[in-house]
C-alpha cells in the first residue's frame, strides 16, 4: 500500500471510530426493533457498518446517527426487498377505533411491588405485541431506542407527522390496555 492510500485508510479508521462506533448500541437496538430477531439484527448492523466504513470518508461529520440510520434503512431494504411487501401498507387502517373512556381508577396499590411490576411489564408486553407492526416499531424506536422523531422519520422514510400520529395511537392503545387491567386511568378529556 502506498503512502497516500495508507493515509486515507488512517483517516477512514479515525472517522469510523469517531462517528460510527459510538452508535453501535443504538443501531443494534434499532435493528432489533426492525427485524425482531437478534441474529438478523446482528447481520443488519454488520452490513450497515461495513457500508458506513466504505462511505465514511465522504461523510461530512454532521448528524452521524441520521446518516447511519439512512444506511441501515437502505441496507435492510436491500436485504429483504422481496420479503417485505408490507412496507407500503397503511397500518392506521388496521387500528380499530377504540376510544377508551371511563372514570379514573386508582393505580394498583400494594406492598408487593415486585409482583405489581411484573404485572405491569406483562401488560405492557402484551399491549406492544398487540399493536400493528408499524405502530410498535415507532414506540420501540422512540421510547426504547431513544431516537428523536426526526431520526425515526428518516429511518422509516415517513414524515415526522406520521411518526407522531403513530406514536399517539400506539401509546393510547397501551394506556387503554393498562386501564383495562386496572393499572392506569384512561384519559377522559380528549
Amino acid at each position: 500500500m502506498d503512502q497516500s492510500a495508507a493515509a486515507a485508510d488512517e483517516r477512514a479508521q479515525a472517522a469510523f471510530a469517531r462517528y460510527v462506533l459510538p452508535e453501535i448500541e443504538v443501531l443494534y437496538r434499532v435493528a432489533l426493533s426492525i427485524t425482531a430477531q437478534p441474529a438478523d439484527a446482528e447481520d443488519l448492523v454488520q452490513d450497515t457498518l461495513l457500508r458506513a466504513y466504505r462511505a465514511v470518508e465522504r461523510f461530512d461529520g454532521t448528524h452521524a446517527r441520521a446518516w447511519l440510520l439512512t444506511i441501515l434503512r437502505n441496507t435492510e431494504i436491500n436485504r429483504h426487498r422481496r420479503r417485505r411487501p408490507d412496507l407500503l401498507d397503511d397500518p392506521d387502517a388496521q387500528l380499530e377505533r377504540h376510544e377508551g373512556r371511563g372514570p379514573f381508577s386508582a393505580p394498583a396499590p400494594g406492598p408487593e411491588e415486585l409482583v405489581v411490576e411484573q404485572v405491569f411489564d406483562k401488560v405492557v408486553d402484551e399491549a406492544l405485541a398487540a399493536l400493528p407492526v408499524k405502530h410498535r416499531q415507532v414506540v420501540q424506536l422512540v421510547d426504547i431506542d431513544g431516537l428523536t422523531y426526526a431520526e425515526a422519520a428518516t429511518l422509516l422514510e415517513v414524515p415526522e407527522g406520521t411518526v407522531m400520529s403513530r406514536l399517539h395511537r400506539a401509546r393510547k392503545r397501551i394506556r387503554d390496555r393498562l386501564a383495562a387491567a386496572g393499572l392506569a386511568p384512561t384519559r377522559s378529556g380528549r
Binding site: I24, E25, L27, Y28, R29, L32, P38, E42, V45, F120, D121, V124, D125, L128, V139, Q140, D143, I144, R171, I174, R175, L178, A184
Partner: peptide
C-alpha cells in the same frame, strides 16, 4: 409513567 414502563419492558437489549 407509561413511557417509562414501555422503556423498561424491553429496554434491556444490548448489543452482543
Amino acid at each position: 409513567a407509561v413511557k417509562a414502563l414501555v422503556h423498561r419492558s424491553c429496554g434491556c437489549d444490548t448489543a452482543p
